[in-house]
Design a protein around this nucleic acid. Structure first.
Lengths: 218, 218
DNA sequence: ACCAAATCTTAACCATTTCTTAACTGAAAT
DNA sequence: ATTTCAGTTAAGAAATGGTTAAGATTTGGT
């Protein structure tokens, strides 16, 4: 049974959605403010989030930027194209304008739950494992805290284990989270990652492919 | 660079989208009918498909049912909720109604490309195999690291197994990656390649064709 | 709204890899 | 035999990668 977090401060809309989802056999978790949403995400780790944008506490946009692992569908009365595009680019997987049709909402939820199967698997390679809830990397069972950039990089490498990831590809990925990142920066991040990993392993993990990019070493 | 297949029979809409995507640095592949779409999917294995529903040949709905691995965004003038919901449930990842806003289309494309993972195919000839996107050549199962120039050369030869590749052709190819490469350079690169391969094989692979260029030897 | 801490970028330096140049040797064509 | 092209090798040039530290920016807590 899939768990869905509803983040919506308007009581009547909230209940409407909750009823709809419950009828469809989803497990529903509630949040009525931005801060409560953050708390519930950590506590319940839902499979999908329905997110209103205008919230007390923390607004929706900031939640989108924070949350990387869980698909977020924005439900908003804001119909401006700028809002829509911005939120999609920032990390939302879908944007539905209110008022919406129940069937469409359910269909879109199903679409994004279909994909989330892949997302929730633990990523491992040899002695390292990336934990998907927080920014933690296990190296021979030792926990290492990663920054979000380091996390993005190692995740991308783990997702494509036998491929070289070009520097540009990595940069694009990173610039989703941090602006203004060039090859120089990337070098530094990779260096940090290798240093952190090497504390608990003799194996060199991230290998450069000269002039192209990086890959996990064999 | 991501490859996107546009399936749309209306010439003007097709071109409009193609222009938009090309500007954004996507590689575009075209299909103007359902049957052509199926053919291009197999031949080109695009990373994403933009699909019009009303098509000559095979209609869009059937394509959605056939294709499982590649994300499909439906572009349709059909605005009925029934159509929308049905296609989403059948396997499309998104549904955009025409006329659409360019920015929204681009944003939604990005969303669905975020999730998609490209697969790497291999190029083989006798005992050698080029692991694509890995810059590694297998010779009798022994891994050999290639530089990007060596990779470009051997890849081109493997792509045209029974043809002689002229020196100029190879030079043009190489100058994409490194400037200032002349015939002398090319000689050296070929020599390096042959040397590397010969470590694990008695067979001579790259053969010169006097005055013309090179080919894979029989 | 402020300050402290964490994180990211910039820049400099050095090490390493790859590329080109060039000289020499060997092979093919006329 | 001579000329032209190919293959090999070594050395120097050029480009890229790794490391580090400092300054800038962002984040988090009070």
């Amino acid at each position: 049974m899939k768990k869905i977090l509803i983040v919506e401060d308007d009581q009547s809309i909230h209940n409407l959605i909750k009823e709809l989802l419950t009828e469809e056999n989803y497990q529903v978790v509630d949040a009525f403010s931005g801060t409560e949403a953050i708390y519930m995400i950590q506590k319940e780790s839902p499979d999908l989030i329905l997110l209103d944008l205008m919230l007390p506490g923390l607004n929706g946009e900031e939640i989108i930027k924070k949350v990387r692992e869980i698909p977020i569908i924005v439900l908003s009365a804001k119909i401006s194209m700028k809002d829509k595009v911005e939120n999609l680019l920032n990390g939302a997987v879908d944007y539905i304008t209110k008022p919406f049709c129940n069937e469409e909402l359910l269909a879109r939820i199903k679409v994004h739950l279909r994909n989330s199967k892949k997302r929730n698997q633990e990523l491992s390679y040899k002695e390292i494992t990336l934990l998907n809830d927080n920014y933690t990397l296990l190296v021979n069972q030792n926990k290492i805290k990663l920054t979000k950039t380091e996390y993005s990089i190692i995740k991308q490498l783990l997702l494509n284990q036998n491929q070289v990831i070009s520097k540009n590809e990595l940069l694009e990925l990173i610039s989703e989270t941090t602006e203004d990142c060039d090859e120089n920066s990337l070098k530094v991040h990779i260096s940090h990652l290798n240093k952190k990993i090497s504390e608990y392993s003799n194996h060199k993990y991230i290998e450069s492919v000269w002039g192209i990019g990086y890959k996990l070493s064999d």
